[in-house]
Simulated scan of single mutants.
Amino acid sequence: MPKLEPEIADEAPCSAEFTAYDEEHLVTYLRLLDAETDGADWREVARIVLRLDPAVDPDGARRCWESHLKRAKWMSGYGYRYFLKKPRGS
């Protein structure tokens, strides 16, 4: 089940399969994609969506944001197919 504010890992998965992490972070991925479409600054997105402070760890926040945005794009292009095939209630 997707969560509104799940725990955020330092980096998103890079598996070719849909993961439990992906399922929990569907809302996060959608928010990242929306922010990119709106042209939001990555620092603002890291602060609001990923709940990270880029002023404290700019490199870590940037890596986290980049990996999650990359995964969000993977989900929107390919990963959603795994989600749609997943039996409900699992």
Rank of each mutant, 00 (worst) to 15 (best):
residue 55 A to T: 03
residue 84 L to A: 11
residue 89 G to N: 05
residue 15 S to M: 02
residue 22 D to T: 03
residue 36 E to Y: 02
residue 10 D to R: 09
residue 1 M to T: 01
residue 42 W to N: 13
residue 12 A to Y: 05
residue 25 H to Q: 01
residue 80 Y to V: 05
residue 61 A to W: 09
residue 54 P to M: 08
residue 31 R to H: 06
residue 17 E to A: 14
residue 63 R to T: 07
residue 13 P to A: 06
residue 30 L to A: 11
residue 5 E to L: 07
residue 67 S to P: 01
residue 86 K to L: 13
residue 62 R to D: 06
residue 84 L to S: 02
residue 71 R to F: 09
residue 73 K to P: 02
residue 14 C to M: 11
residue 59 D to V: 12
residue 53 D to C: 05
residue 26 L to W: 03
residue 48 I to P: 01
residue 28 T to I: 12
residue 73 K to F: 03
residue 85 K to D: 13
residue 29 Y to K: 03
residue 21 Y to N: 06
residue 57 D to Q: 10
residue 14 C to S: 13
residue 23 E to T: 02
residue 63 R to F: 09
residue 64 C to K: 07
residue 52 L to E: 14
residue 65 W to Y: 15
residue 62 R to H: 12
residue 33 L to E: 08
residue 45 V to K: 05
residue 46 A to V: 03
residue 88 R to D: 08
residue 51 R to N: 12
residue 70 K to W: 07
residue 4 L to S: 03
residue 47 R to H: 14
residue 81 R to H: 06
residue 10 D to C: 07
residue 42 W to K: 12
residue 85 K to I: 00
residue 85 K to F: 04
residue 50 L to D: 04
residue 54 P to T: 04
residue 85 K to C: 06
residue 69 L to M: 04
residue 57 D to Y: 10
residue 1 M to F: 09
residue 22 D to K: 08
residue 5 E to W: 03
residue 23 E to L: 08
residue 73 K to Y: 00
residue 35 A to G: 11
residue 82 Y to Q: 08
residue 50 L to R: 05
residue 19 T to A: 08
residue 15 S to L: 08
residue 27 V to P: 08
residue 70 K to E: 04
residue 8 I to V: 11
residue 16 A to S: 15
residue 4 L to E: 05
residue 7 E to S: 14
residue 15 S to G: 11
residue 71 R to M: 04
residue 71 R to Y: 10
residue 52 L to H: 01
residue 45 V to I: 09
residue 36 E to H: 00
residue 71 R to V: 04
residue 60 G to S: 09
residue 31 R to L: 15
residue 51 R to H: 09
residue 24 E to C: 06
residue 24 E to R: 15
residue 17 E to K: 11
residue 5 E to M: 07
residue 11 E to L: 07
residue 40 A to K: 14
residue 51 R to S: 11
residue 8 I to D: 10
residue 43 R to P: 01
residue 19 T to E: 15
residue 77 G to V: 01
residue 90 S to M: 04
residue 2 P to H: 06
residue 28 T to A: 02
residue 1 M to L: 09
residue 57 D to I: 00
residue 23 E to I: 04
residue 47 R to L: 10
residue 66 E to R: 12
residue 16 A to I: 14
residue 14 C to Y: 11
residue 70 K to L: 06
residue 1 M to D: 13
residue 85 K to G: 02
residue 82 Y to K: 09
residue 28 T to N: 01
residue 88 R to L: 01
residue 33 L to R: 11
residue 36 E to I: 00
residue 20 A to L: 08
residue 20 A to M: 03
residue 54 P to W: 07
residue 44 E to H: 07
residue 80 Y to C: 10
residue 44 E to P: 00
residue 36 E to F: 00
residue 79 G to P: 01
residue 63 R to Y: 10
residue 44 E to S: 09
residue 29 Y to C: 02
residue 82 Y to D: 14
residue 30 L to H: 11
residue 62 R to S: 13
residue 75 M to P: 03
residue 51 R to Q: 10
residue 34 D to A: 06
residue 44 E to C: 06
residue 17 E to H: 06
residue 79 G to Q: 06
residue 74 W to H: 05
residue 38 D to P: 00
